[in-house]
Amino acid sequence: MKTITKSFSKFFFALLLVATISFSTSFSSYAQTTTSLGIKGGVNIANFRGEDVKDFDSRTAFNLGLVLNYSVAESVGLSLEADYASMGAKYDGSLLGVPTGEYTTKLDYLRTTLLFNYYMGSSEMNIRPELFAGPYLGFLLGANNKVEDGDYNDVKDGYKGTDFGAAFGAGLHLKVGEKMWLVPDVRYNLGLSNVFDNDNVTGRNGVLSVNLGLTFPLN
């Protein structure tokens, strides 16, 4: 399993690297008409997935970052995102049936996501629905635990340094100016790798996000 996880991690990293290089080449050639830059942020409802962590509850956190959009055609585009994303989960612990307090695990990542976008309708419309999906790769910045309202303790050594998976969702492009768009979306980030640095425990990230972005044309 560990070998498979490493292979998938390398595959997603390579895919993101190739896409970034291609994206940069396209950007230098077509930025005047087809590329936009924006900011985005939102609320994360995060939890762990897996049989070993089925009793965990969700933790509400946030994400904040940048997005670069490139339109391949009127209905097709690519988005490269880089953001700070806080994840984790909560657990109401007990010993012999006696509650011992709520444990909170906070995992913070620098996350890169490549999205393949499908835009509905014409680019002249003021409201355009979109569907999107693609891989993400996250680099662990910090991992902390706390009990109840106590202080957070560093537990980064107990978690793997990278996380990868797939993001998919739907959103709207709302025109608020000349080629300037307000972009709300709802997405799910499905973690595919074990976040724990322990072969005896398996848990993957699962994050439902509600986001809002604003993009500007680069021309």
Rank of each mutant, 00 (worst) to 15 (best):
I4C: 09
T5I: 08
K6D: 15
S7D: 11
F8M: 15
K10N: 15
F13T: 13
T20R: 05
I21K: 04
S24C: 12
T25P: 06
S26F: 12
S26W: 11
F27H: 12
F27A: 15
S28Q: 12
S29P: 04
S29A: 15
S29F: 09
Y30D: 15
T35W: 10
T35F: 15
S36Q: 12
L37I: 13
I39W: 05
K40L: 11
G41H: 02
G42I: 00
V43N: 02
I45T: 04
A46T: 04
A46I: 03
D52W: 00
D52V: 00
V53R: 00
K54S: 02
R59P: 01
R59K: 11
T60W: 01
A61S: 13
A61C: 01
G65H: 03
V67N: 05
L68M: 09
Y70N: 00
Y70V: 08
V72G: 02
E74G: 00
E74Q: 04
S75W: 03
L78A: 03
L78Q: 00
S79R: 07
S79F: 01
S79W: 02
L80F: 08
L80D: 01
L80A: 06
D83R: 08
D83E: 14
A85Y: 10
M87I: 06
M87P: 04
G88Y: 11
A89C: 05
K90I: 03
Y91L: 14
G93A: 15
L95F: 13
P99D: 07
P99C: 08
T100N: 09
T100R: 11
T100P: 13
G101M: 11
G101H: 11
K106G: 07
L110K: 06
F116D: 04
N117M: 12
Y119T: 01
M120P: 01
S122E: 02
E124F: 05
M125A: 15
M125S: 15
N126A: 11
P129Q: 01
E130Q: 11
F132T: 05
A133P: 08
G134A: 05
P135N: 12
Y136C: 10
Y136P: 10
Y136Q: 09
Y136W: 13
L141E: 06
A143L: 07
A143D: 02
A143G: 07
K146D: 10
V147L: 15
E148T: 10
Y152G: 05
K156W: 07
D157M: 06
D157R: 10
G158Q: 14
G161R: 11
T162N: 13
T162H: 11
D163I: 04
G165V: 06
G165T: 08
G169D: 05
A170C: 09
G171N: 01
L182F: 12
L182T: 09
L182C: 09
L182R: 09
V183I: 14
V183T: 15
D185S: 12
D185H: 10
V186P: 00
R187A: 13
R187W: 01
N189A: 13
N189V: 05
L192M: 14
V195F: 07
V195H: 05
F196D: 02
T202K: 07
R204Y: 11
R204K: 15
R204V: 06
N205L: 11
V207G: 04
L208G: 03
V210I: 03
N211E: 09
L212I: 12
G213Q: 02
L214E: 10
T215K: 01
F216T: 08
P217F: 03
L218K: 02
L218A: 10
